[in-house]
Structures are given as C-alpha cells and as structure tokens.
C-alpha cells in the first residue's frame, strides 16, 4: 500500500467522503493517518462535524482498534509564508508581503506555484520522521482537486518548469515529483455509475498515465442496491403475466385483483418502475464494463440512503477494509 494516497474524481462524486473513509480504514489497527485538504473548502471539518480546521495537524477521529486520524487543511498562502520563513528568515517582511497582497498574488497568479506548495506540504508529511526514526504518519490521504485538474496539479514539475527554471521552487518541485511519480504514491479516482463521471474517469486515467503518475484504484461510489436479480428482471420484462401479478398482490392483502381493483391498479406502475430499474441496470452494467477496461482494481461503496453522517463514514471505512484496502 502506497504511503501517499491521493483521491480525485469528478466534482460531487464523493472525493472528500471517500478520502475520509480511506483515512479511517487505513488507520485501523493502531495506525496513524493524516487526511489533508488542499482546496480551502473545509470539507473535512464539515464531514467530521467539527469546527473549521486551522493550518495545523489535528486529531479528528479514532479508528477501530486504536488508530488515529489527523487532519490538515493546507493553506497555500500560509504554506508560502512558511516556506519563505524557512529559506529566508523573512519574519516581518513576510507579513508585509501578505499585507500588500503579494502572497495572494503569487499563489493565485501562478497556479503551478500554488500547487507545488500544496503537494510539497503533503510530501513533507509523508517523509517526516519521529525522533525514533519512524514515520510520523503511516499514511497520508489527500482529498485532491477533481479529475479535470488532477494531472496538472500533480505534475507540478512541468507546470513550474515554465515559470521557474532555477531557484528553490524549482528544486522543491523536483523533490515533490520524485515522491509523486514513485510507488510511494497512488492516485485513486472516485466515480458514479453514470456516463459523465465514467467518461471523466477514463480520460483522467489516460492523462495520469501519460504523465507517468501512478494510478491506483477506481472507487465507484453511491452504488444503488440491487433489488431485482437477473431472473426477476427477465420476468418483469415480459415473462410474467399481469393477471398473475395482480393475483399475487391481492393475495398479499393489497386489494382486489379484478380489473379496476386496488391490486390490479398497482400492476402497471409497479412494472413501469421495474422497466426503469431495468434501464438503469443496463446503463450501470455498461458503465461498469467501461471501467473494467481500465484494468485497475474496482471497488464499490453503497449509496447510504439516509444521507452521510459520521456513522455512515465509519460504515464506508469498514466497507473499504472488507474490500481489501
């Protein structure tokens, strides 16, 4: 298992949720994981129902078996100030720069610069060791930008190359790239079984691979439960007699089976719902096949019908453990 786990995917498919569940799953059995957020949206705090995270590593959850999950919201401006401080002992000058808007300027004007600061901080956490010379974190899980931006985001070297050909940022970018392109890193993509997210996933995999970035797993999220099996689907799509269904409904206490009776009037809408289910089932089947073509390991997480909460998050983590993560 790679020590840096990057979670991307189309917007809204569940990147933040899956990243958090993964951090929990990896922390079981006494391990320590760090969950990092890079887009300044406080998605982790919302999910764990805590107050906004500062730019500071904080314990936010314990995992079954005594593990711990820490979280960090990386702020590119503060990361740049840190950085300036580290290399140039800027002190007050750093603050003056911030006041001027220069830091804001530098981090927003050159997305490559911002990205190298964000990935740099994550890589630093991956490599950090304790006094006992053990890794501080067993795993670092990153809630990363969406598929459309992930390759540019991780491929900082190329991005920064055009902007900074020498200097510390350049060196930093190269150090970051060494971690990101090594087996120490795995980039996972979260998707739904729908056309657009699956398309985006396929495109994303191709892009990442072309950039020599290590693609890990595909995680299909919000999978709806299978309610009709193949047999029942076939029956619903023609095999079964409507009268027989009406009688069956009636025998279950749902009213009369004769034409116009309460049970009989349920037959058409129930079969319509089954037809819709069948159509969706076929579509999902097709999308699964597309995902399988990638040859990457596929995992599926159920749609939690009641909505997401902490309990649901632990459930997803357990599910990931069960599936061998």
């Amino acid at each position: 298992m790679s020590r840096l786990q990057v979670v991307s995917g189309k917007g809204g498919t569940g990147k933040t949720t899956v990243a958090a569940a993964l951090a929990l799953a990896l922390a079981t059995e006494g391990k320590r994981t760090l969950l990092v957020e890079v887009e300044g949206r406080q998605g982790i705090a919302q999910l764990f129902e805590t107050e906004a995270l500062p730019y500071e590593e904080r314990k936010i959850a314990v995992a079954p078996g005594g593990g711990e999950v820490f979280a960090l919201a990386i702020d590119p401006e503060l990361a740049l100030l840190d950085y300036l401080q580290m290399f140039y002992k800027l002190g007050g000058a750093g603050r003056a720069l911030k006041k001027l808007g220069a830091i804001d300027f530098a981090t927003t004007v050159a997305p490559g610069l911002r990205d190298v600061l964000l990935t740099g901080k994550a890589c630093e956490a991956v490599r950090r060791k304790t006094k006992q010379n053990k890794y501080t974190y067993d795993y670092v899980v990153m809630d990363a930008p969406p598929t459309g931006r992930i390759t540019r985001f991780l491929n900082v070297n190329d991005e920064v190359a055009g902007l900074a050909k020498i200097g510390p940022i350049h060196n930093q970018a190269q150090a970051v790239m060494r971690v990101l392109k090594s087996p120490e890193t795995a980039v996972h993509l979260v998707t739904l079984l729908e056309e657009m997210p699956v398309q985006e996933t396929s495109d994303g995999i191709a892009e990442l691979q072309a950039a020599n970035l290590p693609v890990g797993r595909v995680i299909v999220n919000m999978v709806r439960p299978a309610i009709l099996d193949e047999t029942e689907l076939a029956l619903a799509q023609g095999g079964a007699s409507r009268t027989a269904i009406a009688k069956s409904l009636s025998s279950a206490g749902l009213g009369g089976a004769r034409k116009g009776g309460n049970a009989e009037r349920l037959v058409t809408p129930l079969l319509d719902q089954a037809a819709e289910y069948a159509e969706r089932h076929d579509l999902e089947h097709g999308q699964r096949a597309v995902l399988a073509e990638s040859g990457l390991p596929l995992h599926e997480l159920p749609l939690l019908a009641e909505g997401m909460d902490l309990a649901g998050l632990y459930r997803l983590a357990t599910e990931l453990r069960k599936q061998g993560i």
Binding site: P225, I227, L228, D229, E232, L235, A236, A240, S241, A244, I245, K247, S248, L249, S250, S251, A252, G253, A257, L270, L271, Q273, A274, Y277, A305
Partner: peptide
Amino acid sequence: TTPAAPPAPAATDQLTAALLRLHAER
C-alpha cells in the same frame, strides 16, 4: 393461507415481492 385470492405461482410471488421492495425503495 390466503383464501381471499386465487392461487399464484411461486415465481410470480417472488417477482411480485421484488416489485414491492423496489416500490418501497422508491
């Protein structure tokens, strides 16, 4: 067991049960 209704074959019952579960989910 349900004298009110005429007999229904088991496979149909199984399908009907599935249709009802699908409906409940909806």
